[in-house]
């Protein structure tokens, strides 16, 4: 489903030093996989995730999604792909605090240009019920717990029926118990809905729970 070939990402630092965040990455992730990208901080795992999630472009190399080269897409096309193909779950939850839980979940639906095959409101209500967020629809993110916030973020990631969930340290800001619940939720999505899940983490215990581990260190896959 996603394949990266010879992907490099270089940054020019302040003192004209070139820093290579990713070095010749070649990786393919098939549909329905449950994969973790593991590495210590500064290893380039976040950069890799941003490139897979189409938030960032590689300096060189090719990314193919469903056998289509995405490096030739313009900004609008990339936006649409992020909108419909990927669902992001962040460590910081990244909810918009001035919007209610319901409004946060619905954000992706206001940016779509294609006709949705499902009713977004109905889907949002279903996700709220399924994630145990009933009664919190009109609450604001800073009024609910971290675990609830992450569930809202996952609901938001799912609202467009994406093929891929990209979770960047999804448990990083949660206590162990809540973290385990969130992971369980991601497992369920993978198993029942056949969604491809990629978890980025530095925690070997979390990586151990995934079928496939991609280990990255100093910008290179080990």
């Amino acid at each position: 489903m996603i394949s990266l070939s010879h992907v490099n990402k270089k940054y020019v630092l302040d003192d004209d030093v070139i820093f290579s965040a990713l070095k010749d990455i070649n990786v393919t992730i098939e549909q329905g996989e449950f994969t973790s990208i593991i590495g210590p901080s500064g290893s380039g795992k976040s950069t890799l995730m941003h490139i897979i999630g189409l938030l960032d472009q590689p300096t060189s190399g090719q990314i193919r999604i469903n056998n289509k080269d995405v490096s030739k897409l313009n900004d609008d096309q990339l936006s649409s792909l992020r909108n419909e193909f990927v669902g992001f779950v962040f460590q910081q939850f990244n909810l918009i605090n001035k919007l209610s839980v319901m409004e946060n979940i619905l954000i992706p639906t206001i940016y779509t240009r294609s006709k949705l095959s499902h009713d977004p409101l109905e889907k949002a209500r279903y996700l709220i019920k399924r994630f145990g967020l009933e009664g919190k629809e009109n609450s604001f993110p800073n009024r609910i717990s971290g675990g609830q916030q992450q569930r809202v973020a996952i609901a938001r990631a799912l609202i467009m029926n994406p093929k891929l969930i990209l979770a960047d340290e999804p448990t990083g800001n949660l206590d162990t118990k809540t973290g385990t619940e969130i992971l369980k939720l991601l497992h369920e999505l993978h198993e029942h809905e056949k969604i491809t899940v990629i978890i980025v983490t530095h925690d070997p215990n979390i990586a151990a729970q995934t079928k496939r581990k991609i280990e990255i260190r100093d910008g290179e896959i080990q």
């Binding site: 936006s79 649409s80 909108n83 992001f88 954000i107 992706p108 940016y111 938001r156």
Partner: peptide
């Protein structure tokens, strides 16, 4: 800026 980033990640175009 952060909110703009979130919206862009969720599929907002420049024009949005």
């Amino acid at each position: 800026i952060k909110e703009i980033g979130i919206r862009r990640a969720l599929g907002a175009r420049k024009e949005d």
